[in-house]
């Protein structure tokens, strides 16, 4: 009884699905954006450790500081990193006094004694403030575009660190034939919809002067800021990997001991 009912239901679904499978498909115009879109370039990163495997690896503190400098001098005009607190910069090697100075350069919302909104200097405990009060203000100031917060950008895109680097170095003036690019947008095949509203932020070598003598090139800026943004997204990266090595080594020994125990316990059964 059940089987006959099941057979009937089964036939319904099977025939329906097969009917859908053999139905002719409408012509789909190939999506040119998909054809033009490029996957992120595969780069080597210090924080990926030996062999660029991502197993071990620590951040290069000097690179993080350079990346922070690029962020401050170039990106922070439009992009916030609102999930990062000034005190987190201690990870980059800044002293509490330096952090206080950095924080003091920013204004955060506050309320005055009359209850009116005002601003005050940020302290180490504050987060990096938003650039625009809200999305509407951002779009009004940016011709309709909404510069996203960058704190999590390298986790919010697949292969994020490589994506950020590729995007920043991927602008091109050679727009392929047949591709429409409005004048207000820029051609960047690493961006998901190819035409990006952000003008190339790293426009020229020498844009940022590095105090430590590293090459002042667009390529270096892109690498450094991509690394910095990897840190903003994953400040615990180094801790995570260190803990991981210790945990897995422990577990390998524990499992080894467990296996020997298992063999001993089972010796009589396996022989019998």
């Amino acid at each position: 009884m059940i089987r006959w009912g099941a057979l009937a239901v089964g036939l319904l679904f099977v025939i329906n699905a097969l009917w859908g499978a053999i139905a002719p498909r409408e012509d789909v115009t190939p999506d040119m954006a998909k054809a033009l879109h490029k996957h992120p370039k595969h780069m080597e990163w210090v924080h990926n450790g030996p062999g660029n495997l991502g197993v071990l690896g620590t951040f290069d503190r000097a690179q993080l500081q350079r990346g922070f400098q690029v962020y401050k001098e170039v990106c922070s005009a439009c992009h916030s990193i609102n999930r990062v607190a000034f005190r987190d910069l201690a990870d980059l090697g800044f002293t509490p006094a330096q952090i206080k100075t950095i924080a003091g350069e920013y204004e955060v919302p506050a309320i005055d004694s009359a209850g009116e909104p005002t601003t005050r200097k940020a302290t180490a405990a504050d987060k990096f403030p938003l650039v625009y009060a809200n999305e509407a203000a951002a779009r009004a100031a940016q011709n309709g575009a909404n510069p996203p917060d960058l704190s999590l950008m390298t986790k919010a895109r697949p292969n994020g660190t490589n994506y950020v680097y590729s995007l920043l170095t991927g602008y091109s003036d050679d727009v392929p034939k047949g591709w429409t690019k409005p004048d207000t947008l820029y051609y960047n095949p690493y961006f998901h919809s190819i035409n990006i509203a952000m003008p190339p932020p790293l426009a020229a070598d020498g844009q940022v002067t590095y105090a430590d003598g590293s090459p002042a090139t667009v390529d270096q800026y892109a690498k450094d800021v991509a690394t910095f943004l990897t840190w903003t997204a994953e400040p615990k990266l180094e801790n995570r990997k260190e803990t991981g090595v210790a945990v897995i080594l422990f577990l390998i020994v524990m499992t080894g001991l467990g296996y020997l125990t298992y063999r001993k316990v089972w010796a009589d059964v396996k022989k019998a």
Binding site: G10, F13, V14, A17
Partner: peptide, 12 residues
């Protein structure tokens, strides 16, 4: 669609 057809065919 083909795989779904098989899934139901398999059990039913």
């Amino acid at each position: 669609q083909l795989l779904t057809a098989y899934y139901f065919a398999h059990f039913l």
